[in-house]
């Protein structure tokens, strides 16, 4: 008897053959508690974050943005701590993605102020001239559909208060999406900034103002304005400094970020570039 003469038996045999690898690699892990470990500080999404997540899914943000930081040095320098299994236990579906046309977003929460996201999504090219991110200004004009909000929370067994559902009324889709982005990777309260002045002395001596200008336009002008006169971030030409005006203070602001919205740039700008940006800002400051 040959199985090449019995189609039904052939189907059964091939099913068994493909099930071996499927069971070991994919089905058994479904029943392993170690695939979904509890991790301190990981909480389910609240109603507005979940609605925002559904908009992220609807707009296919995952086609260009991943949400996993790999445990590799160049990766953690850019995006932060490596992703951990326990961080994703509430994610149905997962949104790890497979392509980075834009940057990873696993830890984007808290990196920028809300106003940065509104401004950026409304017109990414106004902030970063060379960005290829599609503009999403229309999200701010769409009222959030809240009809399924409660059912969604119940389906996923996420805890919620009725007040949180009621608070969704009048929100826009953009509000929800920003709330979701701000949740990403945020497990604990933000750490207070450590005051260090390392690397200040050598960097500021660089006179490359022109290069600083270019770096500023690419990275800083989106918030501080191409003329440095301010926007989302404060004016840099008025000799008023919220966090101190010494070179060391400016470098610290740039490398470590400041409360109130200034992100940390140390993963993008090395000491040399930071120094050039400071030189450029000095060259434009009044008085």
């Amino acid at each position: 008897m040959s199985i090449y003469r019995k189609p039904v038996i052939f189907i059964i045999v091939s099913l068994v053959v493909v099930l071996v690898g499927s069971v070991v690699s994919t089905f058994i892990p479904l029943f392993m508690p170690s695939m979904e470990p509890a991790l301190e500080g990981i909480t389910p999404y609240n109603p507005i974050e979940l609605e925002g997540r559904d908009i992220y899914i609807r707009e296919g943000c995952n086609n260009c943005h991943t949400q996993t930081v790999r445990p590799l040095l160049f990766e953690t320098a850019r995006y932060g701590e490596p992703s951990k299994l326990g961080e994703f236990v509430h994610d149905r579906p997962h949104l790890w993605g497979s392509k980075r046309t834009g940057p990873d977003l696993a830890r984007v929460g808290g990196k920028y102020p809300d106003s940065w996201h509104y401004k950026h999504m409304e017109n990414p090219q106004a902030m970063f001239k060379d960005s290829n991110m599609p503009p999403y200004a229309w999200l701010a004009g769409n009222r959030l559909d809240t009809s399924l909000a409660e059912k969604k929370m119940k389906t996923l067994h996420f805890p919620f208060a009725d007040a949180e559902i009621r608070a969704l009324d009048g929100k826009t889709e953009m509000d929800a999406l920003v709330a979701y982005l701000q949740k990403l990777g945020r497990t604990k309260k933000p750490q207070p900034l450590a005051a260090t002045t390392q690397g200040a002395a050598t960097a500021v001596e660089s006179p490359a103002v022109a290069e600083g200008h270019k770096i500023f336009d690419e990275n800083c002008a989106g918030c501080h304005g191409a003329d440095l006169a301010g926007g989302l971030g404060p004016n840099l030409t008025d000799a008023e400094w919220k966090f101190g005006g010494s070179d060391a203070d400016l470098i610290l602001s740039i490398t470590e970020g400041r409360p109130g919205g200034m992100p940390s740039w140390k993963s993008v700008l090395d000491q040399d570039k930071t120094g050039k940006v400071v030189a450029y800002i000095r060259s434009r400051a009044k008085g």
């Binding site: 892990p29 979904e36 994703f88 149905r92 579906p93 997962h94 399924l148």
Partner: peptide, 24 residues
């Protein structure tokens, strides 16, 4: 998946398992 409406559902698997099933 677990349907929420005719147009919306949530995956039957969460997080890492969802990713593992997806790429299988």
């Amino acid at each position: 998946a677990i349907p929420v409406s005719w147009f919306k559902s949530y995956s039957a698997y969460a997080g890492a398992n969802d990713a593992n099933v997806q790429w299988w």
